[in-house]
Computed example of a mutant assay.
Amino acid sequence: MTPLRALIPESNAVAGMQTADLAGCVLEVLMSAGPMERGVWNRRNFCMQTGREYAPPGQPDDDAVGIACSSAWSWLEANGFIARHPEQDNEWYLPTRQGEALRDHQALRQFMTSEQLPEAFLHPELLLHVRPLFFQSRFETAVFEAFKALEVSIRTAANLGHDLVGVPLASRAFHPEDGPLTDMNAERGERVALMSLMTGAIGSYKNPSSHRRVEIEAKEARDMIILASHLLKIVDARRPQ
Rank of each mutant, 00 (worst) to 15 (best):
I216T: 14
S196H: 13
V14Q: 01
E187A: 14
E91H: 10
G166C: 06
G58Q: 02
K233I: 06
E187P: 02
L231F: 04
L194E: 06
V14T: 03
E190T: 15
H175M: 07
R222G: 09
W73S: 00
E187C: 09
G66H: 05
R43L: 04
L232C: 00
P168C: 07
E151N: 13
E115K: 14
M36C: 07
S137K: 15
V165M: 14
V214T: 00
H85E: 08
L108F: 00
I67N: 02
P176V: 06
P168F: 01
C25W: 05
G16S: 15
A201G: 07
P60T: 04
E220W: 08
D89G: 13
N159S: 13
L169Q: 09
L181T: 01
T2A: 10
F147K: 00
M17V: 02
A120K: 12
V235K: 02
H85P: 06
S70C: 07
G34R: 08
N12C: 10
I8Y: 00
V26L: 08
S32T: 10
Q241R: 15
R131D: 03
L232K: 09
L232G: 07
G34P: 00
R109C: 10
D178V: 04
I8T: 05
R191V: 03
A83Q: 11
I226V: 12
D183M: 09
V143H: 03
V192D: 01
P35R: 12
G200V: 06
M195V: 06
V192M: 05
H129T: 14
Q241P: 05
Q88C: 14
A107G: 09
G166E: 07
I154E: 01
Q241D: 09
Q241G: 12
Y205S: 05
M184V: 04
S171H: 09
I67M: 02
P124F: 01
D63V: 15
L94N: 12
V26T: 08
D183Q: 11
A72Q: 05
P95M: 13
L117D: 00
P86E: 13
S137L: 13
G200C: 00
N42C: 13
V29S: 05
E119D: 12
A201T: 03
I154P: 03
I82E: 04
F147L: 00
G179F: 03
H85K: 14
D61G: 10
L227H: 07
L160Q: 09
V65C: 06
E187F: 07
G39Q: 12
A83Y: 05
V165H: 15
G39C: 13
G24S: 04
G80Q: 06
I202A: 05
G34L: 06
A33N: 13
V192G: 01
Q116G: 13
A20M: 03
G16I: 04
E37Q: 14
L76M: 07
A142F: 01
A120V: 07
D183P: 00
V14K: 03
I225A: 02
L117N: 03
E215S: 11
A20T: 06
V40D: 07
F144L: 13
A173P: 06
M48C: 11
A228L: 06
G80L: 08
P118V: 15
V192W: 05
A6H: 08
Q98Y: 04
